[in-house]
Design a protein around this nucleic acid. Structure first.
Length: 792
DNA sequence: ATCGGAAACCCTACC
DNA sequence: GGTTTCCGAT
C-alpha cells in the first residue's frame, strides 16, 4: 500500500515513525493533495498530526510559514505548537497554528482596509450582539411580529454560517410575510451597524474572510501562495463557512505571478498551478456541534469533495480500558446513520464502569466527592480526575459539596471572567479609545461610573452626532453645543479628557507604543474615570470582589506584555475576545477539573465522573425533540465516556432542582444501551425503562441512608411536602464557622454525617481542614470554615 | 437620575 | 437559583 514517496523519504527507524502503528504511519507519511484521517476516540490523532507536521518540516517539504494548522480551541492550538516544538525545536515558530476564528482575525486585520474597515476593528461577542439586537428589535417594533432579540440573533447567526448575507436572504425571503420583512430589515440594519462600528461578530470573522477572498482574488492568491500545507483538526465540526474557507485556500493560485506590492514578488513554479495539500482529521461519531451549524457531511462526503483523496482509519485505541470502550461502542452503535467502526485496545479489560443513583443532586455530588477522596488516597493526583455535566448550571451543586469536602477543583469554561460586568466595562473603555467608531462600547461607559447621564442625555448626544455628521464619541466633547447643563457638561469633558490621555499612551502618534502601554492605559482609564474609586467607596461587599477582578485584569495585561513584548492594545483585545474561557493554559495541576461535556472534547483523564445521566439532561429536553437531536446527544454521551482512561463513573439523581423547583428525574435512555454486565451499580436506579419509583426503592434497600429519609415514589413535578423532606439537605447558603477551633480528639456533629471524632487538623486560616472519623459513615475531610458542623 | 423591591424570565452546548 | 427589567418612591 506504500506510496513510492514512503520508500524514499522514510525508513522504519525514522524517529518520527517510532512507536506508531501501520495506519498511523500511513497518516504521517502519505503525500498527496488530500488526506482524510478518520480518527476514533483515543486513537492518537494528535500524535499523528504533530508527527505529520514535523515530518513535513524535517524533510524540508515545507517551511514553517507554509503550514496552516487549524484546531478547535486555542488550548488545542497551544498544545499542538508545543508538541511540534518538542519534535523539531525552534523551527516551529513561523507556523500558523490557531483556530478558524483566530486565523481569520489575523487575515482580516491585515486586509481590513480593502473593504472599509480598519485594523483596529472590534470583535463583538454574543453579549455585545445581544445588546445591539435588543435595541434594533425595539426600534423596528419587531416584538409585535413575534420576533425576539434572541430569536433574531440565532437566525442571523445560522444564516451567516451558511454564507447568506442580508441581501441574499432578502432575495429569497417571502416578503409578503410582514414578520419576514421586518426580520430582513433588522438583518440589514444590524450589518450596517456593525460596519459603522468597525466591528465583526464571531460569525462575520469567518464569513467576511470568505467574501474577502471571493471579492479580491489577488488577496486570496497571496494566502494561497503562502500556505502549501493546510491541516484541519475536528473536521466533523466544521460548518459551511469554514468549509468554504478551506475550499478557497486550497484552490490553485488564480492570477498570474505578480508584484504584490511592498516589494514582495510572488514566486511561481514553472509547472501547472496546484492547490495546497489538505489534511483533515475527524470522527463523525464525535460530531457535537450541529446546533451551531456544524455540518457532518463535510466529513462524510470528503471523498466526493476531494476526488482521489486518501483515507486512513485509526481504530486502535490507546487510551481506555476495554470495559470503557465496550460501554462506548454499545452506546454509539444505536446511531443508525453511521459507518460501523469499532474501537479496540490491546490493554486489559480494566475496572468495571461504576454506576450510582443519588436521591438528589447533592447526594450525587457527595458520592462523587467521597470517591474522589478515596481515589486520591490511593495516590492518584486530583488533576487526573474530571467531572462532566451537560449544562453549566449543574456545576453549582458539585461546587458546594466540593468546597465543604475540601476537594480542590477548577471549573473550565462556564461563566467566564470576561463576562463579568466590571471586566466588560473596563474592556469597553479600552475599545472606546482604540476604536472610537464602536458606539456600543462608548455608550456602555458613558455613565459608568454614574455621571448623572441618563437616557435623555444619551439620546441628545446621539442626535447631535447625527445632525453634525460626527461620531458619538466625538460628540461627547461638545456638551455646550448640545445644550447640556454645566454639571453634565463637566462630566463629559472629564470623560473626554481621560479617553484622550489613554489614547496618547495606547496609540502614540508616529511611534510604536511601549510594551507597558496596555497596562498603563488601562490604569489611567480605571483610575481617572473614577470607576475604581466608586467601587472602592461602595459598601456593597460584591464591589470589593469587583475591584479584585479589575486588579486581576491589570495583571492579565502585564502577563500579556511579558509574553508579547511587541503586542499592541489591538492584539490584547483580540486575545481577550477569542481566547476567553476553557483556554486558561495555566496549570490545572492539583485540582479536579469540572466542565461540560462539550468542553471535554479532546481531553482525557484517568478517572471520569459523568454526572446527571438523566432524561431531559442527556439527551437534553430541547435537543430530544429536534431532528437529529437524540443522535447528537448520544454522540455527546459517547464523547464523555471515551475521555476516561481507567475509571468511569456514571451517576444520576432521582430528583433535581432547577429554577428553584424540584422535580423527579428519570434515568437517561442511554443507560439502557450499556449492557448490564458492564456496570457495577453501587446504587441502582432500578428499572431504567420507566416509571422510576417502586422498583428502584427495592434495589436501594442495601443503603443505610435510605432509612433516614424514607424515599417515596414521586409523581413528576408534584410539589409535595414529602419532596422537600429529602431534597437539599445541604442548604444553598454557604455558612461561615469563622474561628471554630478544633483539635484531635474533639467530637463534632455534622448535619448529614452525624457524630464523629476529629483525627487531625491540617491547613491554615480559612483553609483549615478537619479529618473526621464519623461513627456511621467513616472518615471524611471537611473544610472547617464552611462545613455544617458543630463541636459537641 | 437613582434607588429599591417586585416581577418576570431563564438555562443547552461554544468560537 | 440567579439575573434582568420594570415601576414607583425619593
Amino acid at each position: 500500500m506504500a506510496d513510492a514517496s514512503d520508500v524514499t523519504l522514510f525508513s522504519d527507524r525514522d524517529p518520527l515513525l517510532e512507536g506508531l502503528n501501520p495506519p498511523q504511519r500511513d497518516a504521517v507519511t502519505y503525500r498527496g493533495p488530500a488526506l482524510l484521517i478518520v480518527a476514533g476516540a483515543g486513537s492518537g490523532k494528535t500524535r499523528v498530526l504533530t508527527h505529520r507536521i514535523a515530518s513535513l518540516l524535517e524533510s524540508k517539504e515545507a517551511w514553517p510559514s507554509q503550514i496552516l494548522a487549524i484546531t478547535f480551541t486555542n488550548k488545542a492550538a497551544g498544545e499542538m505548537r508545543e508538541r511540534v516544538e518538542q519534535l523539531v525545536g525552534e523551527r516551529a515558530k513561523g507556523m500558523w497554528i490557531s483556530t478558524f476564528h483566530s486565523a481569520c482575525v489575523r487575515i482580516l486585520r491585515r486586509e481590513a482596509d480593502h473593504f472599509g474597515f480598519t485594523k483596529s476593528f472590534t470583535i463583538y461577542d454574543s453579549g455585545d450582539v445581544r445588546a445591539l439586537m435588543k435595541r434594533l428589535v425595539k426600534e423596528h417594533e419587531a416584538e409585535t411580529f413575534g420576533l425576539t432579540p434572541a430569536g433574531v440573533q440565532s437566525r442571523i447567526s445560522k444564516l451567516k454560517n451558511e454564507l447568506q448575507d442580508a441581501e441574499s436572504h432578502a432575495r429569497q425571503a417571502n416578503m409578503s410575510d410582514p414578520a419576514e420583512r421586518v426580520f430582513s430589515e433588522i438583518f440589514h440594519d444590524y450589518q450596517r451597524q456593525l460596519r459603522k462600528a468597525n466591528a465583526f461578530d464571531f460569525d462575520d470573522l469567518l464569513a467576511q474572510t470568505v467574501y474577502l477572498f471571493r471579492a479580491f482574488p489577488d488577496v486570496a492568491d497571496k494566502y494561497r501562495r503562502r500556505f502549501t500545507h493546510i491541516l484541519v483538526d475536528e473536521y466533523q465540526d466544521t460548518n459551511h463557512a469554514q468549509y468554504q474557507l478551506i475550499r478557497e485556500l486550497t484552490k490553485p493560485v488564480q492570477g498570474e505571478s505578480m508584484d504584490l506590492g511592498g516589494g514582495m514578488l510572488a514566486i511561481m513554479p514553472e509547472d501547472e498551478p496546484q492547490g495546497a495539500s489538505l489534511t483533515v482529521v475527524g470522527d463523525s461519531d464525535q460530531s457535537i456541534y450541529a446546533f451551531r451549524g456544524a455540518d457532518i457531511r463535510n466529513i462524510t462526503e470528503f471523498e466526493r469533495d476531494f476526488p482521489g483523496a486518501k483515507v486512513v482509519l485509526l481504530e486502535q485505541n490507546y487510551r481506555s480500558s476495554q470495559n470503557i470502550l465496550d460501554a462506548a461502542n454499545s452506546v454509539i452503535r444505536n446511531n443508525f446513520d453511521r459507518k460501523d467502526k469499532k474501537l479496540w485496545t490491546s490493554e486489559g479489560e480494566g475496572a468495571p464502569v461504576i454506576g450510582f443513583t443519588g436521591y438528589s443532586q447533592h447526594d450525587e455530588a457527595q458520592f462523587i466527592a467521597d470517591e474522589i477522596d478515596s481515589i486520591r488516597r490511593k495516590g492518584v493526583d486530583y488533576s487526573e480526575m474530571a467531572v462532566f455535566y451537560r449544562t453549566n448550571s449543574q456545576s453549582r451543586a458539585l461546587e458546594e459539596i466540593f468546597i465543604r469536602s475540601a476537594i480542590p477543583y477548577r471549573i473550565m469554561g462556564g461563566t467566564k471572567f470576561y463576562d463579568r460586568a466590571e471586566i466588560k466595562d473596563a474592556l469597553a473603555y479600552l475599545v472606546a479609545v482604540v476604536n472610537p467608531a464602536d458606539e456600543l462600547a462608548v455608550r456602555r461607559i458613558l455613565n459608568k461610573p454614574k455621571r448623572g447621564i441618563g437616557a435623555v442625555t444619551e439620546t441628545n448626544i446621539a442626535r447631535f452626532a447625527v445632525d453634525n455628521d460626527i461620531s458619538f464619541r466625538d460628540a461627547i466633547a461638545h456638551g455646550a453645543a448640545i445644550g447640556l447643563g454645566p454639571k453634565i457638561r463637566g462630566a463629559l469633558d472629564q470623560l473626554d479628557a481621560v479617553l484622550r490621555e489613554a489614547q496618547a499612551i495606547l496609540l502614540p502618534e508616529g511611534e510604536d507604543a511601549k510594551p507597558t502601554s496596555v497596562t498603563e492605559g488601562l490604569q489611567v482609564l480605571l483610575n481617572k474615570s473614577g470607576y475604581l474609586d466608586t467601587l472602592r467607596r461602595s459598601r456593597d461587599p460584591q464591589d470589593e470582589a469587583r475591584v479584585e477582578n479589575l486588579d486581576e485584569l491589570v495583571a492579565v495585561t502585564r502577563e500579556f506584555a511579558r509574553n508579547n513584548p511587541e503586542g499592541t492594545i489591538v492584539d490584547f483585545l483580540t486575545e481577550v475576545a477569542l481566547v476567553a474561557d476553557s483556554d486558561d493554559l495555566d496549570d490545572s495541576s492539583g485540582t479536579v477539573s469540572l466542565m461540560t461535556l462539550h468542553t471535554a472534547k479532546g481531553l482525557e483523564f484517568d478517572t471520569v465522573f459523568l454526572t446527571g445521566v438523566e432524561e431531559d439532561l442527556i439527551p437534553h429536553r430541547i435537543a430530544a425533540g429536534e431532528p437529529g437531536g437524540p443522535q447528537e446527544e448520544r454522540r455527546l454521551f459517547y464523547v464523555g465516556i471515551t475521555r476516561a482512561r481507567k475509571r468511569l463513573y456514571l451517576s444520576l439523581a432521582m430528583t433535581r432542582a432547577q429554577f428553584g423547583e424540584v422535580s423527579a428525574a428519570m434515568p437517561s435512555r442511554f443507560l439502557q444501551e450499556i449492557p448490564a454486565g458492564l456496570i457495577d451499580w453501587r446504587q441502582s436506579p432500578g428499572d431504567v425503562n420507566g416509571r422510576g419509583g417502586t422498583q428502584s426503592r427495592a434495589l436501594n434497600a442495601n443503603r443505610p441512608r435510605e432509612n433516614r429519609w424514607g424515599v417515596k415514589p414521586l409523581e413528576k413535578k408534584a410539589p409535595s411536602a414529602a419532596l422537600s423532606e429529602f431534597t437539599n439537605r445541604v442548604t444553598g447558603k454557604v455558612r461561615d464557622n469563622g474561628d471554630l477551633e478544633l483539635a484531635a480528639g474533639d467530637r463534632v456533629r455534622h448535619d448529614d454525617f452525624g457524630e464523629g471524632t476529629v483525627d487531625q487538623v491540617t491547613g491554615i486560616g480559612a483553609k483549615r481542614i478537619a479529618h473526621v472519623r464519623f461513627d456511621e459513615v467513616g472518615p471524611k475531610k471537611l473544610l472547617i470554615k464552611v462545613a455544617p458542623i458543630e463541636k459537641i
